[in-house]
């Protein structure tokens, strides 16, 4: 188990370094970052002084090393637009995104797992068809469109929910549904497939044969085994959702890290964009690492691979 964790940790660290290098090199994709920063009207001298000021005149690898060293210490430089440390900007906005992410994944799990179980208990029944329809529709639904429809119905027509903002828990209802629905289809399909698989196994037949009540068979014996891959998927989806929250946050004007990313990209605020890409990647890496460890702990067969 310890070897597995160490190996997996080593991989995670290596991935993290590679991602950090890629997000750093984005800055150089634009050509000359100093010219981009100075704007179109700047003179050659202005650009040169900016180049010196931000250290763009040094070799790229040196700059990367410098940036990484500071980033590890939690210093991502200063935002070009806000003129504030990027780290504190992100930290301030991250709570909204994390709240949204946790609500979203909870919503997805609370709808997908019961639906998946119900669908697996009675394959081809009405409930199975409804579950299938919801998952097929969910995969094709553009999340920005879904969000706008919810706003039209529940905020404009019915007036039940506020259309935008993040000042109260009520403001999180629609964003949670939109973000959660994005993660729901995959979780539902995996739960259903896992349950179908487990329900046809020998130990379920044994449990039924010895007269265990159906509820006990389904939840103590079947679901506990079928849920293992779902845990891992949920962690991965959580990582994806934080990265995908940019769309949802922009529709509902939730001023979280995703909204900050959108603003910063539109404003060419590269230090903030770099840091956000790195932060979202780190979340994904940490979540998948935890999921793998959890999986290995729950299911010893996973430790060998």
């Amino acid at each position: 188990m310890l070897t597995f964790i160490l190996k997996r940790l080593g991989l995670a660290v290596l991935v993290a370094f590679t991602v950090s290098f890629i997000s750093f090199s984005l800055l150089f994709l634009a050509g000359d970052p100093a010219a981009a920063l100075a704007g179109e009207t700047a003179s050659g001298e202005d650009i040169e002084s900016l180049r010196k000021l931000y250290g763009f005149d040094r070799p790229m690898l040196v700059q990367y090393g410098d940036w990484l060293f500071s980033a590890i210490q939690g210093d991502f430089g200063e935002s070009y637009y806000f003129r504030l440390p990027v780290a504190s900007l992100i930290a301030e906005r991250l709570s909204v995104t994390m709240t949204l992410g946790v609500c979203g994944i909870s919503f997805a799990l609370l709808t997908a797992v019961p639906l998946g179980v119900a669908a697996a208990i009675r394959p081809n029944s009405i409930i199975d068809r409804v579950a299938l329809f919801l998952s097929v529709a969910g995969q094709a639904m553009p999340s920005f469109w879904f969000g706008l429809i919810l706003i039209v119905i529940f905020a404009i027509q019915l007036g039940w929910l506020p259309p935008s903002g993040a000042s109260s828990p009520v403001h999180f209802i629609m964003p949670t549904i939109v973000l959660g629905y994005y993660a729901m289809p995959a979780i539902m399909r995996l739960t259903r497939a896992g349950m179908l698989d487990v329900l046809s196994s020998d130990y379920i037949r044994t449990a039924r044969a010895k007269g265990a009540p159906e509820g006990r068979v389904l939840f103590r014996h079947a679901l506990r085994n079928a849920i293992i891959p779902v845990v891992s998927l949920a962690a991965v989806q959580m990582g994806f959702m934080l990265g995908g929250s940019i769309v949802v946050e922009s529709i509902f004007a939730l001023h979280g890290a995703g909204y900050l990313a959108w603003e910063s990209i539109a404003r060419n605020d590269l230090p903030t964009v770099q840091a956000l890409i790195l932060v979202f990647s780190m979340f994904y890496i940490v979540f998948t690492f935890l999921a793998d460890v959890l999986n290995a702990w729950l299911d010893p067969r996973m430790r060998s691979s």
């Binding site: 590679t18 890629i22 994709l29 769309v247 959108w262 539109a266 964009v273 979202f280």
Partner: peptide, 19 residues
Amino acid sequence: NVRLAMPVVLVALAVVAIL
């Protein structure tokens, strides 16, 4: 693994904005 760790929407937005 590296590719999966990068947030697609964010990276795509950033690169499209830069280019």
